[in-house]
């Protein structure tokens, strides 16, 4: 318990102590944070370019009933049923949005809003009604808790402890994401840029659209435990959006988004340590801060950069 909102800043307790005294825990937390935001950011680059940001938001909310029902049916927190429940929920969301759009004159934005809020409401009701049976905490769903990551079961491989299970799971997802990115980069690029051309090249744009949606659901479900359903969308949009303010090339943007993810994880962790706040919240604050910084001062397009350049020009041109 403390008195002030901003505690006194002490270099030692904020930056040194977490590593010196709880090095192991801090490592897993930061690694998990990085894996989550890195994977989300990777997928997010395409999500942004395809203008699916809010569909992603909808999916992240709709996962809640999916995992809750999976949980109620199997009575376990195993990865597989949760994953299947989440994917089913993700697909249901997209199908429902499309169905409402095509069967009525409701515009896509309203369809998105109606679908995700209804599904989310169902999820919340299920959780509060079966509160005694589900150890899914509604608040955990909303905030996520990276701090608990080191306390999770340790995954074993050939008798050797390799790390907390969620971290290992996220690492696998990250590797799959990178593999998919390398394998389908050109298809993703062309279907995002010009679906018409893609079709003329024999690349089916709808197939890739659904593939991306599916994988997005997988990424979101493996992330939400750590960052919560709302902040997962921050991890999806911020890295890519910030990178796209700096560079004009997609590959470069992807590299940059990974770099930003690392920054979010490390700085967010220390910010949260200082304020004793939610780590996911801290990461988002850092993400927002970095975006603001880049927005104002990016090398070519930053608002302040432009301003400075303009006034500089004026000075040099005026005699």
């Amino acid at each position: 318990m403390r008195e002030h909102f901003f505690p006194d800043f002490d270099w030692h307790t904020v930056f040194v102590q977490p590593w010196a005294e709880y090095g192991d825990n801090s490592f897993w937390i930061v690694l998990m944070g990085f894996l989550v935001s890195g994977t989300c950011g990777l997928v997010g680059c395409f999500v942004i370019l395809r203008r699916m940001a809010l569909v992603g938001d909808a999916i992240s909310h709709s996962l809640l009933p999916g995992i809750t029902i999976a949980f109620l049916l199997t009575n376990s927190r195993d990865t597989l049923p949760m994953m299947l429940g989440a994917i089913a929920a993700g697909i249901t969301t997209v199908v429902l949005i499309e169905a409402i759009r095509h069967s009525s004159r409701i515009k896509p934005d309203a369809a998105i809003g109606i679908v995700f809020s209804s599904l989310f409401a169902i999820g919340i009701i299920l959780i509060s009604v079966f509160a005694d049976k589900i150890d899914l905490d509604a608040e955990c769903v909303l905030y996520g808790e990276l701090g608990f990551i080191p306390l999770q079961d340790i995954a074993m491989l050939g008798g050797v402890e390799i790390g907390p299970e969620p971290v290992i799971r996220m690492a696998i997802i990250a590797v799959i994401a990178i593999g998919l990115l390398i394998a389908f980069f050109k298809e993703m690029l062309v279907t995002s840029f010009d679906p018409g051309l893609a079709a003329s090249l024999g690349i089916n744009p709808t197939r890739y659209q659904y593939g991306l949606t599916l994988f997005l659901s997988v990424v979101i479900v493996s992330s939400f435990e750590s960052v919560g359903v709302v902040l997962v969308i921050a991890m999806i949009i911020f890295p890519g959006a910030t990178a796209l303010l700096i560079t004009d090339r997609l590959p470069k943007a992807i590299w940059l988004s990974i770099l930003f993810s690392l920054l979010y994880a490390v700085l967010g962790f220390h910010l949260a340590t200082w304020l004793e706040a939610s780590i996911a919240g801290g990461m988002t604050v850092i993400a927002g801060f970095i975006f603001g910084l880049v927005w104002m001062a990016a090398p070519k397009r930053g608002l302040l950069t432009k301003l400075v350049k303009r006034s500089f020009k004026r000075e040099t041109t005026s005699p």
Partner: peptide, 9 residues
């Protein structure tokens, strides 16, 4: 028909 802000050259 395309988004000219797309990050490609």
């Amino acid at each position: 028909s395309v988004d000219w802000d797309f990050p490609v050259n």
